[in-house]
């Protein structure tokens, strides 16, 4: 298994590819089936954000290791319009594309680490991490 998997995100087909790659990597790291569903769903959310707001970007999947424990790192990166008010975007129920607005805050809830950096007109990078139990 490679240490890093990159998936270019241009359309909804790539969203499916990204979550399948993520699930495969997480399964290889020994995550429970329950966690696999969580990780795949969170990847789906951040990848769809790229399609909806930035049109194009990429998902990078990496392995993390600390004190003999393994984890998965998911980075979602785009050079899109950016998010003007990150704090508001992270509130449950907020959405600018008519969605349920649960994608990002929901992903944050189910991952162990969640970090979002966004600059208007420069793009957005979401980094999230989950450790195998």
């Amino acid at each position: 298994m490679k240490d890093e998997v990159r998936v270019t995100i241009k359309s909804d087909v790539d969203v499916v590819a990204a979550r399948q790659e993520g699930r495969a990597l997480a399964a290889h790291l020994g995550f429970s089936t329950g966690d696999l569903a969580l990780i795949a769903t969170a990847i789906s959310e951040v990848a769809r954000n790229i399609v909806n707001y930035a049109k194009q970007g990429e998902i990078i999947l990496k392995v993390a290791e600390k004190d003999g424990r393994y984890g998965i790192v998911v980075v979602a990166r785009d050079q899109g319009p950016g998010i003007a008010d990150v704090a508001r975007a992270m509130q449950d129920g907020h959405s600018t594309s008519g969605g349920l607005g649960l994608g990002l805050p929901g992903s944050k809830r189910v991952m162990d680490d969640f970090d979002i950096v966004s600059e208007v007109d420069k793009g957005t990078t979401v980094t999230m991490k989950k450790w195998a139990r």
Partner: peptide, 14 residues
Amino acid sequence: IQPEVAFAMVQLGL
């Protein structure tokens, strides 16, 4: 809806 999928949904607030 599979058990893992259902549990993931409620944890995400869906």
